[in-house]
């Protein structure tokens, strides 16, 4: 495992911890899209079907279980926990996420590495992860104000994507058998979606001001 990949995994983990911290410490999920969180839970559940068939390393297995458990915990809190549930911006979180699920599934059936149950769901999870942030970005855009922890959550998610791109570039040049074009193309799309957010995040950081997105 190279340094970019490891740093990418860690920033991914940190982003989830920041989100859990926000929900736990403030007992609020304002500014967080339940739809995006549900999509992530679906991403992990469909991608890690190989937990039952392949063993890669203890690190790999533990991280997969952590991602599945934490994403389900976040969805559970936002749906079931009284205080957290009340702070959810339901009327702003109206992105039609089922369209993303349907589109990604259709694409996975058409474009996959092999036409098998597991490979189709793997491709589906890669496509869905690329666009799963959209309901979250739309919610932020609508609410305008972004609190610090929410801003940091998205910042770390974006950093994870950027580091994975560096990881693929590194692997492309150092490993003969490395080919992950489905993941690479989806990863580039996904990282691109963050570019706009990063721009405003950088501006607010530079001006030492609260992050505000233009209407």
């Amino acid at each position: 495992m190279n340094i970019f990949r490891f740093a990418g995994d860690m920033t991914h983990l940190i982003s989830i911890l920041v989100l859990l911290l926000k929900i736990y410490a403030t007992k609020s999920c304002s500014g967080i899209s339940l739809k995006t969180q549900e999509l992530y839970a679906l991403v992990f559940l469909t991608r890690y079907l190989d937990l039952f068939t392949d063993f890669i390393s203890v690190y790999n297995t533990v991280m997969k279980l952590v991602f599945i458990a934490s994403s389900l915990a976040i969805v559970w809190c936002m749906r079931m926990h009284g205080l957290v549930k009340r702070s959810y911006d339901k009327e702003l979180d109206t992105f039609r996420h089922y369209l993303l699920v349907a589109g990604c599934f259709a694409l996975a059936v058409l474009v996959n590495e092999k036409f098998t149950f597991q490979e189709i769901f793997w491709a589906f999870s890669i496509y869905l992860e690329a666009v799963a942030i959209l309901p979250q970005l739309v919610l932020l855009q609508r609410s305008g104000n972004v609190d610090n922890l929410t801003g940091q959550y998205i910042f770390f998610l974006g950093a994870y994507r950027a580091l994975y791109l560096l990881n693929w570039i590194y692997r492309y040049f150092t490993e003969v058998r490395f080919s992950r074009w489905i993941a690479c193309v989806s990863g580039i799309v996904q990282t691109g979606l963050y570019a706009d957010f990063f721009y405003y995040y950088f501006l607010s950081w530079k001006n030492n001001a609260k992050l505000q997105l233009p209407a």
Partner: peptide, 10 residues
């Protein structure tokens, strides 16, 4: 026949 690369990423 080349062996397929494993999906070792998260």
């Amino acid at each position: 026949h080349e062996q397929e690369p494993t999906k070792d990423e998260l």
